[in-house]
Structure formats: structure tokens, C-alpha cells
């Protein structure tokens, strides 16, 4: 969950969820007497448990085939492992009174590709995403998400390659309205300067929110301009 304030700035104190670019764990081929199939199956074991599961730092052994069938009532850590490969990234608008509104849900962010070394050729990779995910069923599962927003306006932020620190900065926000109605677009630009050597926030500049209307099926380039004195 990512939380934003009404000026579209990230609320750091609420944004503790973390998605790593990749994670490595193990599968061990074992038989589990406590599972109904009673046959050998790959079991997930994580030798780098990153979060507490059931009060201790360990993950698994968790059956891969049970995970694929969303049978999460079996030991060990099935719900946790399931979330690390099927989770969605939800963006929330947080109002001053504490109410929250769901802005956007990004699917297929987590566990987008799951691979291991091929058994037949050690120099080849084997894509085992389908061992973990029932790809046909994923749309049904996500359809249950409460109050799904209509994401019918696409945005693409275009950056010029030749921008230099100290220049007038012009960014182009390309918006495309895919709906059959006029949509009101609120653009809020926040520019933050971060020291790359100390990973420290130096300053932030927030531009006032601009409103514009975009007709049905239309697209438009919205220029976002920042003068040097506004960010230096």
C-alpha cells in the first residue's frame, strides 16, 4: 500500500511496505504427510526470511502446488508466501480527516517472473511462473477488489534527455482519455532534490495543482514548467 496526501506527495510515515526488485529462495523436493496429496512436491523454503512469520524468522516449507491452487489453510506460511508472489500495489489518497480513497491498483507487480536453473541444461533458465500462479484465474481473483477505480485516462511523463541542473525544466505529461466522457485532470508536480552520495533529501518544491478538461477519446500534452529559482 502506497499512501499519498491531497497534494499527491508520498506519506512516508504510512509507506512502510517494500517491494524488492527480486528475491531468491529455495525449493526442496519432499513429501508432506500432513498434506492431502501425500506425494512428493516442491516445498518453498526461504533461507533469507525477511519478515516474521508466525512470530519467528523462518519461511516454509510451503507446498508449491497447494499455493498455486490458493489452498492457503495448510502449514507453513502459505498466506505470507502467497502475498509475496501475488500481491497488488494499491495507491491510496489520504484526506486530512483520515478518510482514504483508492486511487489505483497495479497488478502483476509482484512475482511477475519466477525462474530457476534448467534441469536439462545448467546454462539455461527455466520459467516456472506457471508452477506458482494459475494465470487464467488471476483476473477472477482481482475482480473481487473493493471499489475498483476506473482507470480510463492513461498518463506518460516525458523527460528531455538534455536537461541540466540550473536550466529551465520542461516536462511533458501526455494524457489520453480512453473513456466516452470528458474527464477533469488534476496535475500536481513535486520536484525533490536528493543527495546521491548521502541518500538525503535536500529540498522539495511543490507546484500548485492545475486542473484541465480532456474530451472523450482525446489526448493532450500538458507542459509542466519549473524555473531554476524554484528548485535551486
Amino acid at each position: 500500500d502506497i499512501h499519498w496526501d491531497i497534494k499527491q506527495r508520498p506519506l512516508k510515515q504510512l509507506n512502510s511496505d517494500l517491494i524488492c526488485a527480486s528475491h531468491v529462495w529455495n525449493e526442496c523436493w519432499m513429501r508432506r504427510d500432513d498434506l492431502s496429496n501425500g506425494e512428493h512436491d516442491w516445498q518453498i523454503i526461504d533461507s533469507t526470511p525477511v519478515l516474521m512469520c508466525d512470530g519467528i524468522r523462518r519461511t516454509g516449507p510451503c507446498s508449491v502446488s497447494f499455493l498455486k491452487n490458493s489452498e492457503l489453510g495448510f502449514r507453513w506460511d502459505s498466506p505470507f508466501v502467497h502475498s509475496t508472489i501475488n500481491g497488488n500495489k494499491a495507491h491510496w489518497n489520504v484526506y486530512p480527516d483520515g478518510n482514504m480513497e483508492l486511487l489505483d491498483v497495479q497488478e502483476n507487480i509482484v512475482g511477475s517472473k519466477i525462474i530457476t536453473r534448467s534441469l536439462t541444461n545448467e546454462f539455461e533458465i527455466e520459467d516456472i511462473t506457471e508452477n506458482y500462479k494459475n494465470l487464467m484465474k488471476s483476473s477472477d481473483r482481482n475482480g473481487n477488489f473493493v471499489k475498483r477505480p476506473n482507470n480510463d485516462v492513461d498518463f506518460e511523463l516525458k523527460l528531455s534527455d538534455d536537461m541540466k541542473f540550473g536550466d529551465n525544466l520542461t516536462l511533458q505529461l501526455h494524457a489520453t482519455n480512453k473513456s466516452n466522457e470528458t474527464r477533469t485532470i488534476a496535475t500536481a508536480l513535486s520536484l525533490c532534490i536528493i543527495s546521491s552520495s548521502h541518500q538525503k533529501l535536500i529540498s522539495c518544491y511543490d507546484q500548485p495543482i492545475q486542473l484541465s478538461n480532456l474530451g472523450a477519446g482525446k489526448n493532450e500534452n500538458i507542459p509542466l514548467k519549473i524555473r531554476p529559482e524554484q528548485y535551486m
Binding site: 517491494i19 524488492c20 526488485a21 527480486s22 528475491h23 531468491v24 529462495w25 529455495n26 525449493e27 526442496c28 523436493w29 519432499m30 516442491w42 518453498i44 523454503i45 533461507s47 533469507t48 509475496t84 508472489i85 502483476n108 507487480i109 509482484v110 512475482g111 511477475s112 517472473k113 519466477i114 525462474i115 530457476t116 536453473r117 516456472i128
Partner: peptide, 30 residues
């Protein structure tokens, strides 16, 4: 990185005990 090394060590130990083991990498989109 360290994460992969942990997995490699666990696989070595597992195989030494006769339990087939493989290393799995999960990629998340940015």
C-alpha cells in the same frame, strides 16, 4: 548478493542430506 548466497548454502546442505533442492528467483516489476 547475500540473498543468493544463503540460498546456495541451503541447497548444498540439502543435497548433502539427499534432499533434491533448487534455487528459485522471483522477479518483481519496478
Amino acid at each position: 548478493g547475500t540473498n543468493w548466497q544463503h540460498a546456495a548454502i541451503l541447497c548444498s546442505l540439502s543435497r548433502a542430506l539427499g534432499i533434491p533442492c533448487r534455487i528459485v528467483t522471483i522477479y518483481n516489476a519496478a
